[in-house]
């Protein structure tokens, strides 16, 4: 359904997406995982043909750049920042997007019912809550019933109950056979929704795994962000990975996950390699997967695993 081949997107000299290739079959669900600045949002925008890029991306055979309109017709998109015309009324807003996809007013009504927004048509968009705006975005994405749904951190602006609603909705969509591609910071979402996870780091695809492979441990993990002396992050990451820790780099330090009773281990390993650590922060704790208790554990960081890094594509 989605085919990306050597996708490269540069902003000036910075490679926001760096030679990313992957394939996603129909009815599969794929999560893009990585820190802020890893390239998740840019990759989604490339796939939609919004950004020009080097390489090739197709959706059901339609080239995202050459036949962008046809490719996008197969995709419902929910952006990270919900940007609607604030003065417009909800009803008119969704009817406009229905028109763009050649759908009728009845389709707009139907999809509003699906996301429980019926009866709010006369409200102005600026008067909607964050959760309602999110549902409106989802309604717009679903209005033409596209086979692919792309979501860019769909729950980042929601509270716990709003997040749960969106995750439940997406779970149901997944069950109906939709192909999902979404960026997320939250392991609970990824575990619930994704069958595969692409781990991005500084624009590069570093792993293509299942959620279970990404979080194999049942123990609580602690995320630590380290800042090395002389910003020697790349060498430090290499040392930690050789020791079996999964590390994530995003230009704002180096994030490592370790069992909560071994928080000093990364620093010991780096000291043995003569790499100094000038500062560190302890980030949120990741609970065991079995408890599915990630809901109130927002992390802005990383894939955590005690696997080695040898399975890079």
């Amino acid at each position: 359904m989605i085919h990306a081949k050597q996708v490269v997107k540069k902003f000036g000299s910075m490679r926001a997406v760096d030679d990313v290739s992957f394939e996603l079959g129909a009815s599969e669900s794929l999560a893009l995982w990585g820190s802020n600045g890893a390239g998740k949002t840019t990759l989604i925008r490339c796939l939609l043909g919004i950004f020009p890029f080097a390489g090739q991306a197709t959706i059901n055979g339609h080239d995202a750049q050459q036949s962008g309109k046809l490719a996008r017709a197969l995709v419902g998109y929910v952006p990270q920042e919900l940007s609607f015309h604030d003065d417009a009324r909800l009803g008119r807003s969704i009817q406009f997007f229905a028109k763009l996809r050649g759908k009728r007013k009845t389709d707009a009504t139907r999809v509003l019912e699906m996301v429980d927004l019926q009866g709010h048509e006369s409200k102005r968009v600026r008067d909607l809550s964050g959760g309602m705006k999110q549902r409106l975005a989802l309604a717009i994405a679903l209005i033409a019933d596209p086979p692919v749904i792309m979501l860019d951190e769909p729950t980042s602006n929601l509270d716990a109950s709003g997040r749960q609603e969106v995750v439940d909705t997406l779970s149901r969509l997944r069950e109906t056979g939709k192909t999902l591609l979404f960026a997320s910071h939250r392991p609970d979402e990824v575990h619930t929704l994704a069958s595969r996870v692409l781990v991005l780091e500084r624009g590069k695809l570093v792993r293509d795994v299942t959620p279970k492979e990404l979080w194999p441990t049942h123990r609580s993990l602690q995320t630590i962000r380290l800042h090395t002396n002389e910003d020697n992050d790349d060498q430090a990451a290499s040392v930690l990975r050789q020791a079996g820790l999964t590390v994530n780099l995003n230009g704002h330090g180096l994030c490592v996950s370790v069992p909560h009773n071994r928080k000093g281990e990364p620093m010991t390993l780096l000291a043995q390699a003569s790499i100094g650590v000038r500062d560190f922060e302890i980030l949120e704790e990741l609970k065991p997967i079995e408890s599915h208790d990630f809901a109130d554990c927002p992390i802005d960081t990383l894939a955590t695993s005690n696997q080695s890094h040898g399975d890079q594509p």
């Binding site: 129909a26 009815s27 059901n60 309109k69 046809l70 996008r72 017709a73 197969l74 028109k99 763009l100 996809r101 050649g102 759908k103 139907r110 019912e113 699906m114 033409a144 019933d145 596209p146 086979p147 149901r172 969509l173 069950e175 109906t176 056979g177 939709k178």
Partner: peptide, 24 residues
């Protein structure tokens, strides 16, 4: 592209592989 199958979502029929949905 043709509709391959349908399912239910909140009691509404969902086409899993809907038409392209693009307009002139």
């Amino acid at each position: 592209m043709t509709t391959l199958s349908t399912d239910q979502f909140h009691g509404h029929e969902i086409q899993t592989h809907a038409g392209p949905g693009h307009t002139s």
